[in-house]
């Protein structure tokens, strides 16, 4: 069970190998933190784990199903278990509320019900001031918050967050960390970050990641010292 990446190789068209024979497992109930230098393929790995990119070689298993061998219908169903939040989040046109409800709409939930659920969720988490803003008017931090809330509300089995705290102020950071802890009960969460404070605070498992190896770090301070 879990989200397993096995012997993954990946390169962009015409480029060098970004990932070389990388394997890693993610399970529910844990927070995994990936740290590593720039441009070593952390985002690419998350997009492969997020079932967005197909690896050139290797397999992606989600709850023991080899994802890229499933038919289109099964893929659509299995995809709903994994949600990825980009480091530069993209919002669709419309209000923040509509954006946060968008994942429900993609899952076929009736629009009115999706909007009501989204509003209740956002108010419950203390972000009501965002709700009626238009996505075009948001600051970078608000955009990132909206994208995170849009992912959190879906409560996926596996949640992949790429640099989720880059633009978020300390107050909201605390709220987001609390939501991540809540979600951990039901989800496996993977966070790629350069922020060692976040890594140490949130990570049950911390991995140092490079193109061709994933190394588990037992004690972050000891490692850097």
């Amino acid at each position: 069970m879990g989200l397993r990446l096995v012997n993954i190789w990946y390169k962009y068209s015409g480029g060098e190998w970004v990932l070389k024979n990388v394997s890693i497992n993610f399970e529910k109930g844990r927070i995994y933190v990936l740290i590593g230098p720039n441009a070593v393929g952390k985002t690419t790995l998350l997009k492969i784990a997020g079932l967005i990119y197909r690896p050139v070689r290797g397999e992606v298993y989600i709850d023991d199903k080899n994802f890229w061998e499933l038919d289109d219908r099964e893929k659509s169903i299995v995809r709903r278990n994994v949600v990825y939040v980009h480091e530069k989040p993209v919002l669709i046109r419309g209000s923040v509320l509509y954006n946060i409800a968008y994942g429900f709409l993609l899952r076929g939930v009736e629009k009115e019900k999706a909007l009501i659920t989204a509003r209740e969720y956002v108010v419950g988490k203390g972000f009501e001031y965002l709700l009626d803003k238009d996505s075009k008017e948001l600051s970078a931090g608000e955009t990132q918050l909206t994208a995170l809330l849009r992912a959190f509300i879906l409560k996926p089995k596996y949640l992949l967050l790429d640099e989720p705290f880059t633009n978020i102020d300390f107050r909201n950071r605390k709220k987001i960390i609390n939501i991540i802890y809540e979600l951990k009960r039901e989800s496996g969460i993977v966070i790629a970050t350069h922020d060692l404070y976040i890594a140490e605070k949130l990570g049950d498992m911390i991995y140092l990641f490079e193109n061709d190896k994933v190394e588990k770090i037992v004690d972050l301070r000891e490692y850097f010292e």
């Binding site: 949600v83 990825y84 994942g103 993609l106 996926p156």
Partner: peptide, 20 residues
Amino acid sequence: KTYGELVLSLGGSEKQVVDT
């Protein structure tokens, strides 16, 4: 590139990519 990844990242289907 932008919205295709977004839809897939939220668990949408290929058809929903086209729509979005």
